[in-house]
Design a protein around this nucleic acid. Structure first.
Length: 403
RNA sequence: GGCGGGAUACCCUAGCGGCCAAAGGGAGCGGCCUGUAAAGUCGCCGGCUAAUGCCUACGGAGGUUCAAAUCCUUCUCCCGCCA
């Protein structure tokens, strides 16, 4: 490979990265011309791939495309122990079978992004399970409490006098040991993983290995624009969301995030990203158009450009022309709800999951948030004929067709 | 191990015998506005087909009282100081 080509590969690989520690070592290893072992850890309790999680995954895919080996570490052992992080109640321990099944489902989903060649999937129980206490004490001896407290969230919790379980100190060690076990050249992760990745370097060195390069990707903010995208917060887009849903969710993102999404969740080049970012700063209709372009690019990435175009058209039908969407959930009128010729609508709404309770449904109706075939419902009792075959809408985006 | 403090709805927090389904803030939801953005604005925000009604709920279990989120006992968990 020419020096130039190498340099370009290097630029591609570090593009958008938040930290590359140390950068020059990555270039050096690329020069060796061998496939690098690029590790990425996977928590098998997650069951959906969000756009946020896709950021490091897509980076891993880039490495694959350059001929390097993706080493996917399934944290089956650690999942079995349960992470007591923060104040959250200790997760129930999962049985090995359940973890395994989850993990396999996860890996399958990851193949939406990763390629099947240049891929190595490893379960960390393979090397963590056989460790005995002596081995574990040996691992801990390489680190000090002060080192552990360097980690931001530990430092913060310590300062605020919130509990830190000892087991939490062991997690970075387990993860670091994974790096030793698979002889990683590079480990990828979200930026919140930086500390753990650096622990991996130290531990590899302690085991006489060349320390891995830690490459972290920015954490993508969720739809709310504030917190990081996560399944538990419900502010996420799944890469398996239907095109229309994906497009719609992306259109609800705050303006300030357009550039960020464009950079991290699309395959637009730097100029394209800069253009959208600029437009989003200007605001007004230009920002709206920039957001559309971003949404189209994301949907296009996972569903193809045709689907993206259709999603945008469907979006306009629904929100500019206020037509019901073409595809929506269908449901039958719950039999119990019918009383003679009229129906108690709050009961129907809560049975269909459009409202969390009958009281909630009644409130929605009272506030004018419920429509049948586009017409705002005023009364709680509704004629059966009016409902049969109708489209029931709650709020702006929840639709169900009754059949 | 000793002593002290604490656990309130999704989160943070007030209440400290009846006026408490529980103040305030955040999050969330709905209407208007709009670019399904932000800001703004009006409203909702435990459940029950009306209710000045009933049920469930202030960490768990008991108790005192006509009446308990509030008092007592005990258990669990958290925090602090001392060791």
């Amino acid at each position: 490979m020419t020096v130039d080509a190498l340099e370009q590969q290097f630029r591609r690989l570090i593009r958008n990265a938040e930290h590359v520690v140390p950068e020059d070592d990555l270039l050096e290893r690329l020069r060796e011309g061998r496939p690098l072992r690029v590790k990425l850890g996977l928590d098998p309790t997650a069951h959906d791939v969000t756009l946020g999680w896709a950021v490091p995954l897509r980076k891993l895919r880039q490495f694959q495309d350059e001929g390097h080996t993706a080493v996917l570490i399934v944290g089956d052992f650690t999942a079995r122990i349960g992470d007591p992080s923060g104040r959250s109640i200790t997760r129930p321990r999962l049985s090995p079978e359940v973890v395994r099944a989850n993990a396999e489902a996860c890996v399958t989903m990851l193949l939406d992004i990763l390629r099947e060649d240049h891929l190595e999937v490893r379960y960390n129980s393979e090397w963590l399970e056989p460790l005995d206490l002596e081995d574990i004490l040996g691992l801990t001896s390489h680190f000090t409490v002060a080192q552990m407290l360097e980690r931001n969230d530990f430092a913060a919790r310590f300062k605020e006098q919130r509990p830190i379980s000892l087991i939490e100190f062991l997690y970075p060690l387990c993860q670091a040991y994974d790096s030793v076990a698979v002889k990683a050249d590079v480990e990828l992760g979200g930026n919140d993983q930086l500390f753990n990745l650096l622990v991996g370097r130290d531990l590899q060195q302690a085991h006489g290995q060349r320390p891995q390069i830690a490459l972290t990707m920015p954490l993508l903010e969720g739809l709310d624009g504030v917190q990081k995208m996560s399944q538990s917060l419900g502010n996420y887009v799944s890469i398996r969301d239907r095109p229309t849903e994906m497009f719609g969710k992306l259109m609800s993102v705050p303006d300030g995030l357009i550039g960020r999404y464009a950079a991290l969740a699309t395959d637009l080049d730097n100029e394209g990203v800069a253009e959208l970012e600029e437009a989003s700063r200007i605001g007004g209709p230009r920002a709206g158009r920039a957001k559309r372009a971003m949404a189209r690019a994301v949907v296009g990435l996972y569903h193809g450009t045709d689907a993206a175009g259709e999603a945008e058209a469907a979006f306009d039908r629904q929100f500019k022309e206020h037509q019901a969407p073409e595809e929506m959930a269908e449901a039958t009128l719950p039999a119990g709800a019918v009383d003679g010729s009229s129906v108690y609508l709050p009961g129907v709404l809560s049975d269909l999951g459009l409202a969390s309770s009958r009281g909630e449904a009644r409130r929605l109706i009272a506030q004018g948030g419920v429509r049948v075939d586009g017409e705002t419902v005023v009364d709680e009792q509704v004629q059966v004929e009016r409902l049969r075959g109708s489209v029931v809408q709650v709020g702006k985006r929840r639709f169900v067709r009754l059949i």
